[in-house]
Amino acid sequence: MKRRSAIRHLAVIAGGIALLPSCIGSGESASIQLSQITISPEQEKLLAEIAGTLIPETGTPGAKELGVHLFVLKMLDDCYEKGDQEQFLQGLDRLEKIARERYGKGFIGCSTAEREQLLTAMENNEGLPEEIATFYRIMKHRTVQGYLNSEYVMTRERVYEMAPGRYNGYYPVKENIAS
């Protein structure tokens, strides 16, 4: 029972995507089953780090700890046109090349400050190639979505109520949320 609940917990942490044991340890493909795109374990690791830089661990889990990068891959695989999928993967490789050109090491080896410089460039869309812009657009959109819709956030941070059973149309605004 304990093992089963641990596995379930792991699956939940991975953003609701069950990890497939068949892929673990093969060393050649991603840890989730994908049908359209192929991702190497290195690319997966890289995506986890980028997700973690977008939404870092800060005493509460960030996107990497919640496995949100696997959700990004799932969505990329199932919900995008081939052209977007190709640009995403090309953009990811290109980003890694730029990191090596600028800092002499891959994104994973970069310091926090260096990573943030790279993300700032992507966030501001500063003269980077088109594929990087596509990569960042999809990566950021899906990372934010996967994070906000993760079990962790929906049960502990911004709590989703399945059955509120009430509606108050004159609810006083609490000061800390006023715009």
Binding site: G16, K74, M75, D78, C79, S150, E151, M154
Partner: peptide
């Protein structure tokens, strides 16, 4: 719950 849907409600 929303997080139990593989694509969070979106259709492939």
């Amino acid at each position: 719950y929303p997080f139990e849907f593989e694509h969070r409600g979106e259709l492939p």
